[in-house]
Design a protein around this nucleic acid. Structure first.
Lengths: 345, 345
DNA sequence: CCGGTCAATGTGACCGTTCACATCGAAGAC
DNA sequence: GTCTTCGATGTGAACGGTCACATTGACCGG
């Protein structure tokens, strides 16, 4: 490539890509006819269509999305607002959001809000709005996000995961509470009566729902509850919390709000010279692909992150089109492995 | 379609967002002056600029990217081609690509090629090209990608990670070989002489480089090499391979090409009634955040995925601008934890 | 045979921005 | 005092699509 920097007056117009009019000229029709072929309008004679398609092929024509967006004022783009991408769950969901969107001929742009403060979130939203996204899928700590939404009175449709609050039409309903209840019930049925809950950050809707599921199940079974410990999803936190907790050993089981924290916990249990599940039972949440290879293989609650992503797109595109398709809730399932057993005593 | 359009009551343009001309009218200047303010052109009188900015503020003006892209034929968008997003390394890099891109006022769109066959990859490229991306960051199995690139003679700049082949200006150089050598040397220095290598899929450039590093270091130290085992990055594979390998027990150490496979390996070692590191030493690669909580905490090679992402963007934007900024190579570092020790005998 | 409907196509304006070029003073240069 | 330069601004035409509307035959009913 030549590096003629700013001058460039010579080549400029020459190598612009073929436009609808170039195709029209070659196919000997009007540009509007080409446009009709593009949008497969019904009343185009087959022979004409073929001629146009041939011309497109020959010129390697590609429709210009910017031009289309300009005139229709529809970008065919949806945004994803996310905070951490490095975690298995969000990543998987994002991936399937993207696949589903592409399927529907939408493009996805993502905006990351690395810090969960409101300014950062507003920034991320702003970035998406600048792209003229038609809708936004939110995969992030939602409490903060909502205050940001209010502050900037967002005008595009968005979807989130269902909270315990009424988000109604905006939310894909994942029954986190049911999953958390199943995990908790499993421990109770094994005979545990002193169960701690390692919760996630409370501004994540999932974390809150799981915590509520835990508390509800405990109380339904008349098991005395202990105050949940609020964590940050990381294995490091699970390790530290576990180390701290084990100084007292006043419990026989822990339900962790995700698998990473459970991993840290397992580490802490070993470091304390104890055995899981003999001394302490542990249940995780998410069923990341590594969970079955933890030591011991982790009993956890499986979530279909890919399905969540698909459903988000389905709902969002529906709302963009003015409908409100509400599918059935997605229910996580308990997967029993080896990190849980009857309490020792 | 229901054609329930607006009855001709009021303006139909009422809904469209404010344009440059609306701002111009309000600020009592020409649209071109507004454009100049937008692109901070030097010769604008301060008072004029202020007037325009005030008008923008009042109308909540946002530049229309589509219009700008149309006329400049520059989309200010870069694409990411990726295969798996669910893994820690790629996710982290993608996240930092996005952050760096946003910093430079670029937008990122991602295209996923879930299956590594050429058709899928061509599809993904196609999707990106449709967005008129100005450049592409490739985070995917590269061998297949390259054949796809050839087939569709890609006209936009792209960057990848450095392979052992000469990619020259297209690649950010991550010295995977050095990392792999460090890991291997560590095992050799501990006294191991029978070392297996669990490699990644060979169409991933990283996998190949790590394998070559392993082989080179082994041969430099006159340690007899065994044929590497080609895996798929998953813990499941590590487990299965480990189980298989341990039927013979003709080795004392394994260098795994990533941490997930190492995790599966640890699982297999325990299942065989053996102890890591007493019986078998294991070294991983990547240093995912969970690695320090594995049992035993994993000796591994740390990679700065975020830095990789940043460098990809730096290089790509440079190339888009016609430069070729080549930074120093990124060198991974060995992190010694508890999964390695002297061989028992 | 004539008006009407409809399938197939064409015409010109418009979306919101930038670009090339024009204009118009004011400030030096001589 | 006139010419030139240049800073500050304006004018109209792109860019590549879609939209609303016009046009043309062919077919059909009465």
């Amino acid at each position: 490539m030549s590096t003629e920097s700013t001058d460039g007056s010579a080549g400029r117009g020459a190598d612009r890509a073929a436009s609808i009019r170039d195709v029209a000229r070659l196919a000997d029709v009007s540009h509007q006819t080409v446009s009709r072929v593009l949008n497969n309008h019904p009343s185009i004679r087959d022979t004409t269509r073929d001629r146009v398609l041939a011309a497109m092929e020959q010129l390697q024509y590609r429709p210009n999305r910017a031009a289309r967006a300009l005139v229709t004022s529809r970008s065919r783009t949806i945004g994803i607002l996310t905070s951490t991408r490095a975690h298995y769950g969000p990543s998987t969901s994002i991936q399937s959001v993207e696949a589903a969107a592409r399927e529907a001929d939408y493009t996805v742009v993502t905006a990351n809000a690395p810090h969960p403060d409101e300014a950062t979130i507003v920034d991320a939203f702003d970035h998406l709005i600048d792209q003229a996204v038609e809708g936004i899928v939110i995969i992030a700590p939602q409490v903060r996000v909502f205050s940001a939404i209010e502050r900037m009175n967002l005008r595009v449709p968005y979807v989130t995961l269902q909270s315990t609050h009424e988000l109604g039409a905006n939310a894909v309903h994942v029954d986190q509470m049911a999953g958390a209840r199943a995990a908790t019930r499993h421990l109770i049925e094994l005979g545990h009566r002193s169960i701690y809950h390692l919760a996630g950050p409370q501004d994540w809707i999932e974390a809150e729902a799981r915590m509520r599921g835990f508390l509800a199940e405990m109380s339904d079974n008349d098991v005395p509850t202990t105050a949940p410990i609020l964590g940050d999803w990381t294995a490091d936190f699970g390790y530290r919390a576990g180390t701290e907790l084990l100084r007292f050993r006043d419990f026989t089981a822990v339900f962790s709000s995700n698998d990473q924290m459970a991993l840290g916990l397992l580490h802490a249990i070993r470091d304390a010279g104890l055995d899981c599940p003999r001394d302490i039972s542990v249940v995780g949440f998410d069923d990341i692909p590594e969970a079955s290879h933890f030591w011991p293989p982790l009993t956890t609650v499986s979530q279909d992150f890919a399905e969540i992503g698909r459903r988000c797109v389905e709902l969002l595109l529906g709302r963009i089109a003015g409908e409100a398709p509400q599918g059935p809730p997605i229910t996580p399932a308990l997967i029993v492995r080896n990190s849980t057993s009857h309490p020792a005593f």
